[in-house]
Nucleic acid binder design. Structure first.
Lengths: 122, 122
DNA sequence: CTTGACAGACTACAGATGTAGTCGTTACGT
DNA sequence: ACGTAACGACTACATCTGTAGTCTGTCAAG
């Protein structure tokens, strides 16, 4: 079942979505450039993700190779839906309108959205 | 600084954005219809929100009237931005595309988005 | 004046989260 | 064969969150 994934855990998942399977050390190394976590911290997060059913382990000698069990897309979809439900009554246009009001939309964003909508209208 | 507001706390804020100022009991009563929380729980959440600087109190005899100190819009904007940054590299069209792929967009949603984009293009 | 209802303050406590240390084992280099 | 580095398992601990109980003071009704 879709247990929630915390922020820190998500950073670990990201590496494994980028490339898998990886050893704990490889994950730690990949993350090292972004966050300054000790290897132990990464290992704890990996263990928690395994416990949550988000990662699969595969023995490789006496260590593990980790790979994602949940899809990145599925996670994004769940989290996005959750936000939209909580904050915008489940409707998406107020969400987009919010970004419009905050003026955080670039011309590129607008063009992309336009293309997307046109595609959807068909 | 904008301390984060948890899910439960958000439910309390919602009532106060709907109508303020309110007493603790009024908030509890208003929420009671949606969640079955004890009055104590609501009071704890109110106190935490005050501690976080999200609510202001105003004495009314021997009790307090609570009112929001942060804007609903500002909170929505912050949370939305946070999600988009974390999950979609800060770009919004992939977020919308995600909903499109998940087929959770109604015709109404699409029409609204279209109108919104047209307005933005000017 | 007494009592009881109610208000806020303080306390409780389990589970999640962020961040890491320690322990016991094992494989590899020498 | 032996030490040592590295690995996973277990432990740690402060903070946040969800959910509520208890304590103490006070206002209002009788």
């Amino acid at each position: 079942m879709a247990e929630r994934i915390s922020d820190s855990e998500y950073a670990v998942m990201e590496q494994l979505w980028r490339a898998a399977p990886l050893t704990a050390n490889q994950v730690a190394e990949a993350i090292g450039s972004e966050r300054s976590w000790s290897v132990q911290t990464v290992k704890t997060l990996l263990a928690r993700l395994v416990a949550k059913g988000a990662l699969a382990t595969q023995a490789d000698g006496r260590r593990f190779l980790y790979s994602p069990l949940i899809e990145r897309e599925a996670h994004r979809a769940g989290e996005s839906q959750r936000l939209v439900d909580r904050l915008f009554g489940g409707r998406i246009s107020p969400l987009v309108a919010q970004f419009a009001d905050a003026e955080t939309l670039s011309d590129t964003d607008i063009a992309e959205l336009k293309a997307l909508i046109e595609r959807l209208e068909k």
